[in-house]
């Protein structure tokens, strides 16, 4: 099986995806991802020269828009009802930069 991603890559991907993985999880994830990516090989072997991609499987549907008309919003309470933490009618989060400075 080809090595598509290394453990180092998996650590970077996890960091970007904002998922903490323990060292042993990194090892297993690397194995799993390589196996799955290996199974995607057919897609890389197709002759697709000149084939237009279908990003939207909706036929000829285009220019779908709504009118600029106000619709009732949530009440403040509804908006905040699922907030894990709140303060002063806002969603409350811990320090964005943390102690390590900018990320």
């Amino acid at each position: 099986m080809a090595q598509h991603v290394t453990e180092r890559d998996v650590r970077d991907i996890a960091e970007y995806a904002r998922i903490h993985l323990d060292p042993d999880e990194i090892v297993q994830m690397t194995v799993d991802l390589n196996s799955i990516i290996d199974s995607l090989k057919p897609i890389t072997e197709y002759d697709l020269e000149g084939v237009v991609p279908t990003f939207h499987p909706i036929g000829s549907l285009s220019n779908v828009m709504r009118e600029d008309v106000e619709v009732t919003s949530f009440t403040q309470e509804e908006a905040l009802s699922n907030a894990p933490a709140r303060q002063d009618d806002c969603f409350l989060i811990p320090s964005i930069l943390g102690e390590g400075g900018d990320r």
Binding site: V5, A14, L33, P94
Partner: peptide, 30 residues
């Protein structure tokens, strides 16, 4: 219990999502 958002993000997503969800997110990100 997290003092910075980064570690809250990473722990919440690690513990909130199950293994298959994590795998697909990782795969998509790659």
């Amino acid at each position: 219990g997290h003092k910075d958002l980064g570690s809250q993000y990473e722990a919440s997503r690690a513990n909130g999502f199950g293994p298959e969800a994590r795998r697909r997110i990782m795969l998509g990100s790659y």
